[in-house]
Amino acid sequence: MPQHDTDLHIAGDGPDEIPDPARIEMAAIGESLRAGWSDFMRAPAFGLFFSAFYVAGGLVLLTVAAASGQEWWLMPFVVGFPLIAPFAAVGLYEVSRRIEFGKPLIWREVMGTVFAQKDRQLPSMAMVILLLFMFWVFVAHTTFALFMGVSALTNITSSADALLQGRGLVMLVVGTIIGAGFAAVLFSFTVVGLPLLMDREVDFITAIITSVRSVALNPAVLLCWAALIAVTLFLGILPLFLGLFVALPVLGHASWHMYRHLMPDAEIR
């Protein structure tokens, strides 16, 4: 891959050309994970820093829910966590990009690059992600009420048995299918869309379209990649969110390398 200037575009430079997505093999998953682990080991402080925000947020939610005796209300947020996890990767993309091109990992420069995104297209993508996440929470609670009844919304905290029989099981199946649909849509938007917005001067609609095209070209590989991300994040959440200190940075760095597989001719700006 030719070497390019790794500085960010200045807003107003004009849109970049977008190369066609590449067709990739299953081996790209292993290669991306190995590269992600290598980047995390190379700069662990950055990974721990960016993931700390999500760990802290999860612990705050858990504390509030437990204090109010409404732990079950936390479930839609936990299940929907993979929907907003890509935000943690934004700073990690910059770290991986600098490692890739041998640039120094200076905190001021890395954070400056992240904050500079406010003047580009990333906030628009952020709104799409947050709106989908909030809609998912609303749909999850509505699904619960439809199957279990309004009274169960207050009584469920005393026993989980209602979720493991009859309508509870049906509700869990339906809710899982709906949640998977939300996750699939958002994954299709962001797997290439987010790193592309970091890498090139493009509008967020173009980034989303390019990302969906990449998924359509590699459905089997990216389905496995999405499933791996979801399972890893879920396992990271289980030990009081603490597993995210490793899961998020490794997956964040790996996502950058997966982007490189999908857009091999993309230039780092």
Rank of each mutant, 00 (worst) to 15 (best):
Arg269Phe: 11
Met125Ser: 02
Val60His: 06
Ile24Asp: 00
His4Leu: 04
Tyr54Asn: 10
Pro264Ala: 07
Met125Thr: 03
Ala126Phe: 07
Ile129Lys: 03
Gly243Gln: 02
Ala227Leu: 13
His253Phe: 11
Gly168Val: 04
Thr190Leu: 13
Ser214Gly: 12
Asn218His: 01
His9Gly: 01
Gly243Ser: 01
Gly12Leu: 00
Val55Ala: 00
Asp5Gln: 14
Tyr93Pro: 07
Phe50Leu: 03
Ile29Met: 04
Met148Thr: 01
Met127Gly: 08
Thr142Tyr: 15
Leu196Cys: 04
Ser124Phe: 12
Ala28Tyr: 07
Leu172Val: 05
Ile209Asn: 10
Ser32Asn: 12
Ile129Gln: 08
Glu267Leu: 10
Arg200Pro: 00
Glu201Val: 00
Thr210Val: 05
Ala180Glu: 15
Ala230Pro: 00
Asp161Pro: 09
Pro195Arg: 09
Glu94Asp: 13
Val215His: 02
Pro76Thr: 00
Leu169Tyr: 04
Thr176His: 03
Gly30Trp: 02
Phe144Pro: 00
Leu74Lys: 14
Phe138Gly: 02
Ile268Tyr: 13
Ile229Ala: 08
Phe138Trp: 13
Gly14Phe: 06
Asp203Arg: 05
Met125Gly: 04
Val231Ser: 07
Leu233Tyr: 04
Gly252Asp: 03
Leu244Tyr: 01
Gly252Arg: 02
Leu48Gln: 04
